[in-house]
C-alpha cells in the first residue's frame, strides 16, 4: 500500500523514516514532499505533523525528528513483529523486547500514535531492506502498514535513489514482467534475484561482455565482480570518467540527462517526469548511442534462425 508523494504532502500527519537518512541522501525530500509543506488539511505544516526516525545510530535526519528510536543493529524484523503484536493486542515477552534496544513503552507509544493519526506514512531505506533479514524486513514493515489500515489510513514507500533506477525498474516490468535480476538466455525473460542479478552474474563470471549505462558498478560492487568487468570487453556510456569507465575497454562520453539530454525520469513514487535540457552538449545522448549500435547490429546477418519456436509453456 503506497501512494504518490503528493498524498504525503497533502495529508500525512504521522511520518516514519526507518533505516534511512533523507537529510543527507534525499536532501530536498523533507522540504518538497513531506515535513515542511503546508496543505489544505495540514495548514500549519511541520507543526501539524509528527515524525519518528528509526535507525541504529543518530544521523543528521535525527535533527528533524520529533522522536528518535534507536534500535540494535539487525533487530528491525523483531521490532516490526513486536509492533504488529502490540497492534493486535497480543502479549509480548519482555526478554524479546529487551533484545531490541527499545522499551515496551516506546513501542506502545509508536502504535498509539500510528492509530491516532489521520494519515500515516512509513518510508524505509536500505538500512532496513539491505541489512540482516533483507526483503523479510521490508515485508514485515509493509504488513504492519497494511494492518494499520484496520484503524486508519496508512501507506508505506521505499526511499529509492541513484538517478533513474525507478524508471529502469518500471520499464523492465512492462516489457518483461520483472523489475531486475532478469535473464534472457532462453529467449524469454526469467527472474531470480541472487542468481541473475548483475552482481551474481559477474561474480560467477557468466557473462562474456558488458554494457554499462548510467551506473558505476566499479565503485560499488564486490571485488570479484569488478575483476570480471576488467577481464571482459566492457563498454561504458557515461558523461563522466568513473571507476567503471577506467577499467572499461570502451568509454563513450554521453550528454547528461536532464541537463543536456531530454528524456523521462521516474520519481521514487513512479510518477514520470519529463526532462528538459537547459544546455546543448557536443556529446550524443545515451539513447542515440544505443540506437546507433542497434542499427549497426541490424546491418549484419541476423544471428538468430529465421523460424524459431513461438511460445512454450514453462512447466
Amino acid at each position: 500500500m503506497t501512494c504518490t508523494l503528493g498524498e504525503v504532502k497533502n495529508r500525512a500527519d504521522f511520518i516514519v523514516y526507518w533505516g534511512g537518512n533523507p537529510a543527507e541522501c534525499h536532501p530536498r525530500h523533507f522540504t518538497k514532499y513531506t515535513l515542511m509543506q503546508k496543505s489544505k488539511f495540514l495548514p500549519r505544516g511541520r507543526k501539524d505533523r509528527t515524525m519518528i526516525l528509526v535507525d541504529i545510530r543518530e544521523t543528521k535526519s535525527g535533527g528533524a525528528a520529533d522522536i528518535f528510536l534507536q534500535i540494535r543493529p539487525g533487530k528491525d524484523f523483531e521490532v516490526l513483529t513486536i509492533l504488529r503484536a502490540i497492534l493486535k493486542g497480543q502479549h509480548v515477552n519482555s526478554s524479546i523486547v529487551a533484545e531490541t534496544g527499545l522499551t515496551l513503552e516506546q513501542m506502545t507509544d509508536f502504535i498509539d500514535r500510528a492509530k491516532k493519526a489521520r494519515f500515516g506514512c512509513m518510508f524505509f531505506g536500505m538500512g532496513l531492506s539491505m541489512t540482516r533479514g533483507k526483503h523479510m524486513n521490508s515485508a514485515a514493515l509493509l504488513t504492519l502498514a497494511a494492518e494499520l489500515n484496520a484503524f486508519t489510513k496508512f501507506v508505506a514507500m521505499p526511499m529509492r535513489g541513484h538517478g533513474n533506477v525507478t524508471g529502469a525498474d518500471v520499464i523492465m516490468r512492462w516489457q518483461t514482467g520483472f523489475p531486475f535480476g532478469i535473464t534472457f538466455n532462453r529467449g524469454y525473460p526469467r527472474y531470480n534475484p541472487g542468481e541473475f542479478s548483475t552482481v551474481d552474474v559477474l561474480v560467477r563470471g557468466d557473462t562474456d561482455a558488458a554494457l554499462i549505462l548510467g551506473a558505476d558498478p566499479g565503485a560499488t560492487m564486490p571485488q570479484p565482480a569488478i575483476d570480471h568487468l576488467a577481464r571482459i570487453p566492457t563498454i561504458v556510456l557515461d558523461p563522466k570518467v568513473t571507476h567503471t569507465s577506467r577499467l572499461a575497454r570502451v568509454h563513450i562520453t554521453t550528454s547528461v540527462a536532464g541537463i543536456s539530454a531530454p528524456g523521462t525520469a521516474y520519481r521514487m513514487d513512479e510518477i514520470p517526469l519529463p526532462l528538459k535540457p537547459a544546455l546543448k552538449s557536443p556529446y550524443p545522448t545515451d539513447e542515440e548511442v544505443v540506437r546507433r549500435i542497434n542499427e549497426a547490429v541490424a546491418r549484419k546477418p541476423h544471428w538468430m534462425p529465421a523460424d524459431g519456436p513461438m511460445t512454450i509453456m514453462q512447466h
Partner: peptide, 16 residues
C-alpha cells in the same frame, strides 16, 4: 510469470 506461456524472441518478434 514463471508458470505461464512464454513468448520466445524471434527475428520479428519481442519476447514476453
Amino acid at each position: 510469470h514463471r508458470r505461464t506461456t512464454a513468448f520466445i524472441r524471434t527475428q520479428s518478434r519481442r519476447s514476453g
